[in-house]
Design a protein around this nucleic acid. Structure first.
Lengths: 132, 132
DNA sequence: CTAAAGCTTGCCCTTAGGGTAAGGTCAACT
DNA sequence: AGTTGACCTTACCCTAAGGGCAAGCTTTAG
């Protein structure tokens, strides 16, 4: 028998916020939840599992659109793991690009910071570097 | 004598977009630009220098609020380089934190991707990993 | 004179939700 | 029965840093 929980319980059990869950529903990641007569959303264990999937995917940095694609594949028994991996590799490339960009910033900024005397004088290598 | 340029020229010379320049003005980074009688913004070389400063700082990932602080220090002859360095170090810490976070994602995602056979079968280690 | 290019403001859009308000519902306690 | 507090609903505004577009004015080139 299916145990049904309201959105607050679902949030607690999945580590999401109620706001997020509604947001995901509106974004089309989840099918619209069943409601009580009073209009309260109800979630069964399968839906909780989907919410959990979403949380994990979001924690790995997938965008909501990407999670939507992942969910589609997850739900599709005809999927090929190739497709899944392609999505993952794509996201992986995005991550690597961001890391490289940030490390580039970090390196330059560290150089500037290292050459700043950090005293009470106005002369500052960081500002000079930004000015050039 | 000061050569004055309109916003399009200023954009071209600083590598910013006209939209960005207006945005920075509205955000309070620049003092309001002088206008022609027709209402066109005019920029002198000092203002172009400030726009350049902003571009450099933004390229290093400083937020507009942080750039605002940097500009204040830059314009203040009484500044101490300590203050500047503190801002830089703070931003540096933010960058390092983001890098660490992304690398964490990258590592997990790479593991999942590596263990995915990437064939035509539905069985997929990535989806399994997201489900757990 | 006219067409093209440049400028103006204003509005909506983006991501992934957070915060709050106004109001309906449910369970417990008095 | 009444009430309080916790929980739920929708709706609206807010975030960062602009992009894109529309309507309308100005300037420049032909």
């Amino acid at each position: 028998m299916a145990t049904l929980v309201t959105i607050g319980q679902a949030a607690k059990q999945t580590g999401l916020s109620a706001k997020m869950i509604r947001h995901y529903e509106e974004a089309g990641l989840l099918h619209k939840a069943n409601r009580t007569e009073a209009g309260y959303r109800l979630y069964n264990s399968q839906q909780l599992q989907q919410l959990n999937f979403i949380r994990q995917a979001r924690a790995l940095g997938f965008s909501i659109a990407q999670v939507s694609s992942l969910l589609d594949l997850w739900r599709d028994p005809q999927r090929s793991s190739k497709e899944v991996k392609q999505l993952a590799e794509q996201h992986l490339d995005e991550i690597k690009e961001k890391v490289a960009e940030l490390q580039q910033m970090q390196q330059i900024l560290q150089q500037l910071a290292d050459s700043c005397c950090a005293d009470d004088q106005p002369q500052c290598a960081i500002l000079d570097g930004l000015q050039k």
